[in-house]
Amino acid sequence: MFTGIVEHIGTVLGYQAFDDTASGGNGVSITIGNAKPILLDCHIGDSIAVNGVCLTVTEFNEDTFKVGISPETIKRTNVASWQQGAKVNLERAVSQDVRFGGHYVQGHVDTVATIESRKSEGNSIIFGFKLRDPQLEKYIVEKGFICIDGTSLTVTDVLSDGTFFISMIKHTQENVIMPFKKTNEEVNIEVDLTGKVIEKQIQVTLDNQIKNEDSPLNKLVGKIIEEKLEKYLNGRT
């Protein structure tokens, strides 16, 4: 679990494909450098969010660490654009003594979005985004949380076509990679888990109610049908 509060900006040093036949596909191995501040308490098997992607440390030294990335992660994220020298946001998994300053972030990227616009507003930057997968637009709401490239941000506006916006203050600009990006570049998106959980709970509840003939929902629907039918029949006589 993560908070979406970026701790450090690292650098991609190497990007190597490997044959991952044991897991049914081909993956990549990536080495991240300039990471000393977040490796002081590192162990093999630890989770580190890299641009919002929860990855497992397989090797590390004082300044670098290596992670393996599966084909599924490559499809969901912008990992394929992490060329040598690229800057990436880094955050360690939360510990008991971490203040929860952002929001609940799993590090499970849902999709990518394209930067549609960016403009200055005082000392802030307003970014506009468009999701690759429009079916996820329902989870993005004004004033709701969203995680973009591992950064916890607040949605400031959502247009009818699904375009959404965030406002990035000066402090955040100085500590994350998004200000380095230009329009038409992609970012990783993790929507707020809360919306997905609520949707699932409602769906399961409705399914159970519909299947049970004696459920309150079925009784209510039956009563409404009877009343409508009675009015219809009375109107014909």
Rank of each mutant, 00 (worst) to 15 (best):
F100E: 01
I115C: 06
K130I: 14
G85N: 12
D110S: 01
G128K: 01
R118V: 12
E91H: 08
G101E: 11
H103F: 08
G102C: 06
T154F: 11
N123W: 07
Q84K: 15
G144L: 04
Q106L: 15
I146M: 04
L136V: 00
H103K: 09
E121M: 13
G150H: 09
V88P: 00
L90V: 06
V112H: 01
K119L: 10
N89Q: 05
V88Y: 00
I148F: 04
D97A: 15
D161G: 10
E142D: 09
L90K: 03
F100G: 05
Q135M: 06
Q83S: 12
K143E: 11
Y139N: 01
Y139C: 01
A86T: 14
R99E: 10
F127A: 02
I148M: 07
N123A: 14
I146Y: 04
G101H: 07
V112M: 12
K119N: 11
H103T: 09
G122K: 13
I126H: 01
P134S: 15
F100I: 12
G102A: 06
E121Y: 12
L136Q: 02
A86I: 11
V88E: 02
V112C: 13
V109R: 00
V155H: 05
D149M: 01
S95I: 10
H103S: 07
G144D: 05
D97P: 00
D110A: 05
Q84T: 13
V158H: 04
K87V: 06
F145T: 03
T154R: 11
A86S: 15
D161V: 06
E116L: 07
S117R: 07
R92S: 02
T151L: 07
E137Y: 00
V105S: 04
A86E: 12
E91D: 11
L159R: 14
I115V: 13
V88S: 01
N123Y: 10
I115W: 03
S117K: 09
R118H: 15
I115M: 03
R92G: 02
R132P: 03
D97T: 14
T114C: 07
F127D: 03
H108Q: 11
R92N: 12
Q84E: 13
Q96K: 13
Q106F: 11
F145H: 09
D149F: 02
L136I: 02
S117D: 15
E142F: 01
T114W: 07
G144E: 04
P134H: 11
D149T: 02
L90I: 08
